[in-house]
Write a protein that binds this DNA or RNA. Structure first.
Lengths: 123, 123
DNA sequence: CGGTATCCACGGGGATACTG
DNA sequence: CAGTATCCCCGTGGATACCG
């Protein structure tokens, strides 16, 4: 971690896998919703205000595929499905919260930078 | 940082600013290229294999706008422009390297998760 | 040298409606 | 309840050509 001088290191760490859907809109939010326990499909839709079932399914499938969540389906009627965060997912969530915390900690700097840029380019 | 229970925390930390272009394809790579000193436009194009001038300009402008890089233009002929990482940009780079390191550290887990998913869904 | 100008491809994501 | 099925929008980013 001390010699990462090649920008190619961000190519999914060497193109070993395809894209990992970490920086997308929903993965982080889903992991947050799961951090305190299992949640059902419909339960997830509440805090994830505005997400459509199609997009939620896509996001959950991708997270399941990469091992961030586990899907538990109970063949009842009506059907019941619960999603659970894995250790890997919890570990990833920690990294994501760090990034989020960075933004929060530097909000005023970001705002000032944007204003300064506007002032500079207003000419 | 211990009570981030609302997934809305990822909405750019509250929609105070517009999108901050942190998770895009080029910002991290650019900051890596600048970490050891100022670089000129054409110098950046070398390690950033394949980037077109248009996209490099867009990315640099966004990074400048958010205060991650500084642009130093010298009105000579032929023109010379140097880009320099700021303290804020260096701080962000640290976070990005952490995320990258996480992926590297969990590569085998990711690969195994994908294979397991394929095996499960092959039915 | 350090960009602009145009055009275009693609994938994430949203809206709406329907189903086992 | 837990999804599918369609259709569509838009932003990132790539290709190519041109300019002061």
């Amino acid at each position: 971690m001390s010699e990462p001088l090649d920008p190619a290191m961000f190519d999914d760490c060497g193109d070993v896998l395809g894209p990992v859907r970490i920086g997308d809109k929903w993965t982080a939010r889903i992991l947050v919703c799961l951090k305190d326990g299992r949640r059902r499909f419909s339960e997830l839709r509440v805090p994830l205000r505005g997400i459509t079932p199609k997009v939620l399914t896509e996001s959950l499938r991708a997270a399941e595929r990469d091992g961030f969540v586990e899907r538990h389906a109970y063949p009842e009627i009506p059907p019941r499905v619960e999603y659970e965060i894995t250790d890997l997912g919890r570990s990833l969530l920690g990294v994501m919260e760090t990034t989020c915390a960075w933004t929060a900690a530097h909000l005023t700097e970001l705002i000032r930078a944007r204003q300064a840029y506007l002032d500079r380019t207003a000419s």
